[in-house]
């Protein structure tokens, strides 16, 4: 079947040990650098979030909603749907934060964007400065982009030592579950041909 629904990354809580390797890999995948933590040229800003509730640990991230509320509320059309998930165009983001409020799973954050080893800056009013304003690192909408430009696919999935994360295609899962359910049914009334 063709995939008509956006894939997304889902974690299995029972497998997650809470090591944050996914967050680390995610953050690293979205900034320039080499193979080591020290080589990364910007602060780490992960796009999925290890969440601890009691004994449970599980990373939570964007589901790439089909009717994405973040995209719907964005006043500047910075969030849009593509055939590779719901994506953010940081150049259009004005940092209004409405998307954070509206996301039902808490997948959106405001993060710094770094380009060429420097944070993207914005001008803010400051009466105390001589020019009446000053520059500070801009905080812009930041969320899972399914590592769209990464050759090996999503970094978090690759990094998880427990294989607790997977890029799932909901249509394929549905189809497989349908088949399993039908096969299971075969063992019920079908065996005896009885009428229940």
């Amino acid at each position: 079947m063709p995939h008509r629904l956006n894939p997304f990354i889902l974690a299995t809580a029972s497998k997650c040990i809470g090591c944050r390797a996914c967050e680390l890999a995610c953050a690293a995948a979205h900034i320039e650098g080499g193979v080591s933590v020290g080589s990364l040229q910007a602060p780490l800003s992960p796009r999925l979030y290890l969440t601890c509730v009691g004994e449970m640990r599980v990373p939570v991230g964007c589901r790439h909603c089909e009717d994405a509320p973040c995209a719907a509320v964005c006043p500047n059309a910075a969030i849009y749907r593509t055939d590779r998930g719901v994506q953010v165009d940081e150049s259009r983001c004005v940092g209004c934060k409405t998307c954070i409020v509206t996301c039902p799973v808490g997948a959106m954050e405001m993060g710094q964007i770094w380009e060429n080893g420097k944070p993207v800056m914005r001008r803010v009013a400051n009466d105390n400065s001589p020019e009446g304003s000053e520059m500070e690192p801009a905080l812009l909408a930041s969320k899972c982009d399914l590592c769209k430009d990464r050759a090996g696919g999503p970094a978090c999935v690759e990094a998880c030592p427990e294989q607790a994360l997977a890029l799932i295609y909901p249509d394929a899962i549905k189809r497989r579950r349908n088949i399993q359910a039908a096969l299971a049914l075969k063992g019920t009334g079908a065996r005896a041909g009885e009428v229940l």
Binding site: P2, H3, P7, L10, A11, T12, A13, S14, K15, C16, V53, M56, V58, G153, V157, Q163, A164, A166, L167, I168, Y169, A172, I173
Partner: peptide
């Protein structure tokens, strides 16, 4: 060439959905 089935069986439990 569209990516088709990267999905893994590991996801079967979906315990994360049972919070």
């Amino acid at each position: 060439e569209e990516s088709t089935s990267v999905e893994s069986l590991s996801i079967e439990e979906h315990a994360s959905c049972h919070i």
